[in-house]
């Protein structure tokens, strides 16, 4: 009789413990991704549905600096939406509500505003070419992009520096949209950049260093 009684009544105890263990296991697994356990990262991404959906349209600004001579590299990856949301909240120095105050747009007698107005309406082509003994600068407009090429030649060609800047005209327009108030609208430019598609914005190459700034839809910095 005793054995029967023990057998019957131990069942709910076992069931209780089994349920509790299952609960503990579930909670433990749910808590693991927050500890940063790399092995469970896929689990985290499965549960993180909102992020996965947001990631489809997210665009990223990448900066990559490589110094082959010293074996150094720096990678910076920034979601453009993050910059677009953060910048309007910064009120410091010349940056207010996502706009930068420009104190003097008339640089050495050159009216940048007038030049950009002219560029916007102009056909594709090269507008400025400056050739000096050790330096060349080209400014052009091509396929709705503003392109600036600078080449610096030092003692020999290998030591020189080459800078290429390509900015979509939409981004330039957005940046300059508040120029009448002597301000550059950085947030509007970032928004335009996010909508402009994949683009390499800046490349700088010299004998040992290589700098690259680009926008794409990959969160990593693999080119």
């Amino acid at each position: 009789m005793n054995t029967q009684t023990t057998g019957k009544s131990s069942k709910p105890v076992k069931t209780s413990l089994a349920v509790a263990a299952l609960l503990a296991l579930t909670i433990g697994l749910a808590a693991l991704p927050a500890t940063g356990a790399a092995a469970f990262a896929p689990t985290a991404s499965i549960f993180n549905g909102t992020s996965a959906i947001a990631g489809n349209t997210e665009r990223y600004l990448h900066v990559k600096v490589e110094d082959a001579e010293n074996g150094e590299s720096v990678n910076v990856n920034l979601p453009l939406s993050l910059a677009e949301k953060i910048l309007p909240t910064v009120n410091h120095g010349d940056l207010h509500h996502g706009r930068v105050k420009v104190h003097d747009l008339d640089v050495d007698g050159v009216d940048l505003r007038a030049i950009l107005d002219a560029l916007r309406d102009a056909e594709d082509g090269e507008f400025v070419t400056v050739k000096q003994k050790d330096q060349e600068v080209h400014v052009a407009k091509s396929k709705n992009n503003l392109i600036v090429h600078c080449t610096e030649n030092k003692d020999n060609a290998k030591r020189g520096q080459k800078v290429e800047v390509t900015v979509p005209m939409k981004v330039v327009d957005a940046l300059m949209s508040t120029m009448k108030d002597n301000e550059l609208d950085v947030v509007a430019a970032i928004h335009a950049l996010a909508e402009a598609g994949d683009a390499v914005l800046v490349t700088v190459q010299d004998a040992s260093q290589h700098v690259r700034v680009w926008v794409d839809s990959h969160s990593g910095s693999a080119e």
């Binding site: 991704p33 927050a34 500890t35 940063g36 356990a37 790399a38 469970f40 990262a41 985290a44 991404s45 993180n48 909102t50 992020s51 996965a52 947001a54 990631g55 997210e58 990223y60 010293n70 074996g71 150094e72 590299s73 720096v74 990678n75 910076v76 990856n77 920034l78 979601p79 939406s81 993050l82 949301k85 953060i86 969160s219 990593g220 910095s221």
Partner: peptide, 29 residues
């Protein structure tokens, strides 16, 4: 708020001889 929203990713990575610095978002952290 935005960091919570974005996908897991590396924000900054610096590699030098004998040194490695990595700042990333992983699993909500």
């Amino acid at each position: 708020d935005e960091l919570r929203r974005v996908n897991d990713m590396a924000f900054v990575e610096v590699k030098q001889e004998g040194q490695h610095v990595l700042v990333k978002k992983q699993g909500g952290s």
